[in-house]
Design a protein around this nucleic acid. Sequence first.
DNA 1: TATGAATGAGCCTTCATTCAT
DNA 2: TATGAATGAAGGCTCATTCAT
Lengths: 234, 234, 234, 234
Amino acid sequence: MKRGAKPPIRLAREQRFGDILRAARKVFCEKGYDQAAVAEIAARLGVVEGTVYKYFDSKRELLHKVLEHWYEEMLGDYARDLAAVVGARARLRLLVWRHLRSVREHPQLCRLMFREVRAEQDYRGSRVHAMNRRYTQFLIEVLRDGVAAGEFRAEIPHALVRDMIYGGIEHHAWNHLCGRGDLDIDRIADRIAAVVCDGLAARAPAADLHLETEKLARIAARIERSLPQHRARK
Amino acid sequence: MKRGAKPPIRLAREQRFGDILRAARKVFCEKGYDQAAVAEIAARLGVVEGTVYKYFDSKRELLHKVLEHWYEEMLGDYARDLAAVVGARARLRLLVWRHLRSVREHPQLCRLMFREVRAEQDYRGSRVHAMNRRYTQFLIEVLRDGVAAGEFRAEIPHALVRDMIYGGIEHHAWNHLCGRGDLDIDRIADRIAAVVCDGLAARAPAADLHLETEKLARIAARIERSLPQHRARK
Amino acid sequence: MKRGAKPPIRLAREQRFGDILRAARKVFCEKGYDQAAVAEIAARLGVVEGTVYKYFDSKRELLHKVLEHWYEEMLGDYARDLAAVVGARARLRLLVWRHLRSVREHPQLCRLMFREVRAEQDYRGSRVHAMNRRYTQFLIEVLRDGVAAGEFRAEIPHALVRDMIYGGIEHHAWNHLCGRGDLDIDRIADRIAAVVCDGLAARAPAADLHLETEKLARIAARIERSLPQHRARK
Amino acid sequence: MKRGAKPPIRLAREQRFGDILRAARKVFCEKGYDQAAVAEIAARLGVVEGTVYKYFDSKRELLHKVLEHWYEEMLGDYARDLAAVVGARARLRLLVWRHLRSVREHPQLCRLMFREVRAEQDYRGSRVHAMNRRYTQFLIEVLRDGVAAGEFRAEIPHALVRDMIYGGIEHHAWNHLCGRGDLDIDRIADRIAAVVCDGLAARAPAADLHLETEKLARIAARIERSLPQHRARK
DNA sequence: TATGAATGAGCCTTCATTCAT
DNA sequence: TATGAATGAAGGCTCATTCAT
């Protein structure tokens, strides 16, 4: 160490690891991967670049770890929250809503995921990839359960629905991901659920249902009228 | 110029412009934007880097021009093809199918669009952006026409459907965009159309409901018949 | 020390010293000096870098010590083996053969010596240097003894012969030092001894031999003349 | 270019190439390969590092080119000079002398060759390697011619002699290569030629032959004495 | 004695872009 | 119009060594 230099602050490995991860997350979010300099990440913690490399093999690994960490956060209470909701459609909506919420809360992390990680060669087979699969797997299971419960049609390919939902959200939120505009996640979640569940096609059923309801109402009225107490009250 | 060297080949400006565009498209597709060197694009034509800059202000502009040119190709016969198809659903499927075909034929150009162009700041307001809007506008119009014709429900937000379709295709074709696997565009087009038009929800309820109503009606009738006043009235 | 971690294994200083030396030798041989990381040497023993520095002042000193240790091994039975051989030429051949054997058995250590140690500034005056001198001194003595015994000519500069032998072996074994090819050390030893002892030159003995032949011829003639049948023919 | 910066000096490609080569040679010789910074090489010419990389793909290639260039210099008049000398031994001595002269004139280039180039993986199959073979091939040919002319014995393996000569010179000149001491190249050349041609061995064979002849003579005398006519004549 | 966190100095390499000719 | 030499900034990464605990 140079004469007069401040002695380095020594932290527990875990602590420093977490610090670097947090700092990296911030810098990556602010500047994007390419524009982020490892030196800056280090500087924010008051350490030198070399220290970062003691904890992470490369800048790229750091990026991956940041996103892995994020997925862990997100996956944390997914299963629990989902368990509290009944009905395939309601569960599907929950997943859509939660994803939208993630996009709204962490648009830059989403951008990192979409642009820097998912698009690169090292994504396939990576831990982030596995976590992403676990993340989207919840939707697949909701679809499967929905089919089992008779709520969803069996012949719809789940992977495609998954892609339309996540891809659709990504496209729809693109402006927001780029830092422009708000995201009314409740409304969008409703609408996505509606499109996915009911489709575009105009429904004849509505009419039928109405008719049946009318009939039932008439029957009920007749029964009511023919009841003794009804007469009595009259 | 060096003594004895061949005089530089002078081509009509248009010709040279097109040559550069073609070479750039090739190189960009092969290597991606970042990995493509202006020097290589120039080298393929036997010119030097400076010449490229006589025709394009920057590498980035060159990229944009490449994609503009592609959109022009794609947009060329869109309206005509669409005019030949009747029915909102069939037209929607056609657009989905054509987009899938583009993805299958030019995955690398799609990648360029997705990764290098759409994600950058200079996309908004660019010509490519405008062309992309024209491109997806066809779908919006098909949706609108479908609503007008009573084929599609009115309350579905078209922009969302558009995003789910294009985003869904992008996600679904991701492997193919990365050079892996084939794309069965006919089947995928069918399925996307099916999901979008009909939705996931199981459609029998109407019929079942009817049966139940019948049962209830019969029960009610029996009750009615067995009531004293009924008899009396009769 | 972390709670629950095993207490560091404390070994007798000698033991630990030797362990580090052995680990360093392995790593240096496998990777070469530059590519060998002190961290790896430490890791192989399950200790940390700092520990290595408790025993060796620097990586460079470690390298030197590794080679000193090797020289000790080699010098161990040199004198004894040499004493068992009679005749300057045979002894010279033995030294050549033993050196070749070392090269064959430990090409990587040789490489370290040639490339990393001998070529650097800190070699002169180092212990390795002294040991190397002792090592090659055996040859000088063999040459001297050979001269004393009348087997070798007096006017040949011994240092030069030494350099031609060791340098020649080094060059000749270069491929093997780089991990390619075998080394037929018996044959090479014979040949080196042959070149060094007898030289290239076709032998002028030609002249002497002629004289002797003349004498023999004269004797033969005399015998011939004294034979009975000779007289008879005459 | 920045405002106010001096406009770059534009040189013909060949000229600049040569300049860089010369500067690199100097810097490599002064500092060694590792310690030489490309930036310094560039700075000496008043250009930036990028310019160096326009002419050479890598620092390593630059090193190789420097040595190739040197070999070209050395090989230039080799054949011609050699042709002027008569007799295998004299020619051999010439080659030794010229090599020694190269070592004396350019010890640092020799060091580069020995330490940085020849010892690395990329040497085999490189142009420098080929040129080195051409360089040492002259010696092989001299040996071959010497054998053909009856000057040299046929049974000596030429590759070994070559290695002993070049390896011997390298070892012998090591101090000089490291910047210490002078090199009396005439004397060393004489001595090397002497060792290689005549060998170490004292030339007793003649004497032995003489003894044998004596023995034969005595036998012949005895025979003579015992012959009848001998007695008679006496 | 052993730990192990932190240091810190460098250097090769790339390439879009410029501009004098 | 075409050339092509030159710019110039920027950053990831490595590791021997130190020293407080």
